[in-house]
Design a protein around this nucleic acid. Structure first.
Lengths: 230, 230
DNA sequence: TGAATATGCGAGCAAAAGCTCGCGTTGTCA
DNA sequence: TGACAACGCGAGCTTTTGCTCGCATATTCA
C-alpha cells in the first residue's frame, strides 16, 4: 500500500480561499458520492472525526489534515468526498441541525394541544432539550455560521422554531396578550430563550436548571399568561 | 525615504500563531509606547484603520498588512506598537468597550432613582443605546472574543451591566418578584436583552424599535412589575 | 549643528494550511 | 480470473499571512 511521490513542478495556479472578504454565496462545487460500503464507512469516519476535532479544537484549530488523521484516512480520501473544508463543516452542520430538529419536534408537537400555560413551557423545554444534542459542537458551529456561509442552515433551527412559535401564538390569540404583533412576539420569545440556552451551556447544572425554569416564566410573563403555580 | 532590502538568510525560527488550540492566557508581550506626536498619530491611524478593515472584512479578512496599508503606514511601524494582531484587536476592543460603557452609565445612572417601572426601561434603553456605538464593529468583535482571549473584556460590558442590574434588583427587592434569586434574575434579564439587541441590529429600524419596546415589557413582565400603561 | 534617539520603511522569510496528483489497492462483474 | 472501476494513499506544492530586520529619515537636545 505505498503510493507514489512526485508532482509536476508547476501547475498554473489556484484561487484558494475566497478570503471571506469576497464571501462566495455560490458555495459547494460538490464531489462524488460513495458507492461501495467501504467508502461509506470512510465518509462516516471523516464526518465523525470532524465533529470530534471541531468540538475539541474549535474551528481554527481544525485542519483537514488533522481530521483525516483522526479519521484514520488520508487527506486525499477526504478531498475525494468533500471539495473543501467548508463543505465538510456544512455537512456536519446539516447533520447536527437535523438531529436537533428531530428532538425539538418530538418533544413539542405532543404538547401543543395542551392548555397554553402548559404548552408554552413545553415548547421552551423542547428547545432546551434540542440544544442538549452535542452542546459543545453546537457552540462551535453556532459561532462559525457566518464563516461557513451557512447562515441559512443553523439559522434553520431558529427560523423553523420561530415559525412554530409564531403559529402557536397566531392560532390562539385569545389566550395571550401579544396578538397585536405576533411576528415580533415570536422573535422576542425565540431569541431570548435561545440566548438563555446558550448562556446556560456554560453554567453549572444547578444554575442551568434555574435558568431553564426562569425562561418559561420570562415568556409567560411577557405573554401575559397566568403561571400554573400562581 | 527608501529603505534597505535584504535580510540575513536564516534567523533560527519562530513560534508563530499559538494556533488557538493552545490558546495562551498569558497574551500581550507589550510594545513600546509612542513618545513624539508623530508616532501618536501613527498609532491612531493604525487603530482607526483596524476598525475600518474589521468592520468591512471581518476578523479573517483583516490582515496586518492590509491594516497598515489602509492606515498609510508600513507593517514595520504597526509591529513597533503592537506585538501582534491579537494585541491590536484587543486595543480596539478596549476602546470600544470604554465608549459603550460611557454611554451606558451616562444614560442609566440618572434614571436609577426613579420609580421601578420607569427605571427598568431606562436601564434597558441605555443598553440599547450603548450598542448603537458602532454596531458593525461590535458585531465582529463580539463574534471574535473567544479568539482574542479577551473574553474578560467585551464580556466586561455584559458583566458590568449585569452587576448594575443585580445591584438594582438587590436594592429594591420589595418592588419586584425575583428577590429569591437575584443573581439568576440579573443573568436572565441582561442575557435576553442583549440577545434582542443583537437581533435588532440586523432588523429594519421600524421593527428594531418594536423589539426595543418589547424588551422592556419582557423584563417588566418577568419581574412582575405593573407596566406604566396598564 | 551634530550626535543621539525615536520613528518609519518594506522586501521578504518561515510556518501553516488547503489541496492536488500519480499511482497502488481493493472490490465488482462478466 | 482478468479487466475495469471505485477507493485510498500521502508526499509535497502553492498561497497566505504574521512578523523580522537592517537601514533611512525625522526629531530632540546639548
Amino acid at each position: 500500500m505505498r503510493a507514489s511521490t512526485r508532482v509536476q513542478p508547476k501547475p498554473p495556479s489556484r484561487p484558494r480561499k475566497p478570503s471571506s472578504r469576497t464571501a462566495s454565496p455560490a458555495a459547494a462545487p460538490a464531489r462524488k458520492a460513495p458507492r461501495q460500503i467501504r467508502s461509506r464507512a470512510t465518509v462516516d469516519a471523516i464526518v465523525d472525526a470532524a465533529a470530534r476535532v471541531l468540538r475539541q479544537d474549535g474551528y481554527d484549530g481544525t485542519t483537514t489534515n488533522r481530521v483525516a488523521e483522526v479519521a484514520g484516512v488520508s487527506v486525499g480520501s477526504l478531498y475525494q468526498y468533500f471539495p473543501n473544508k467548508e463543505a465538510l463543516v456544512r455537512e456536519l452542520l446539516e447533520r447536527h441541525d437535523r438531529a436537533m430538529w428531530t428532538v425539538f419536534t418530538d418533544q413539542s408537537t405532543c404538547a401543543i394541544g395542551r392548555p397554553f400555560a402548559e404548552a408554552v413551557p413545553a415548547v421552551i423545554d423542547a428547545l432546551f432539550a434540542a440544544h442538549l444534542v452535542d452542546p459543545q459542537l453546537h457552540q462551535v458551529l453556532h459561532q462559525q455560521i457566518p464563516r461557513v456561509g451557512a447562515l441559512a442552515l443553523l439559522h434553520a433551527t431558529s427560523v423553523r422554531s420561530r415559525a412554530v412559535v409564531e403559529g402557536l401564538l397566531q392560532a390562539r390569540t385569545e389566550e395571550h396578550q401579544r396578538g397585536d404583533d405576533v411576528p415580533t412576539a415570536a422573535l422576542v420569545v425565540v431569541e431570548s430563550v435561545e440566548a438563555l440556552i446558550h448562556a446556560s451551556i456554560a453554567l453549572p447544572p444547578a444554575q442551568a436548571n434555574a435558568v431553564q425554569r426562569h425562561a418559561s416564566e420570562l415568556v409567560l410573563g411577557y405573554l401575559g399568561v397566568a403561571r400554573p403555580g400562581t
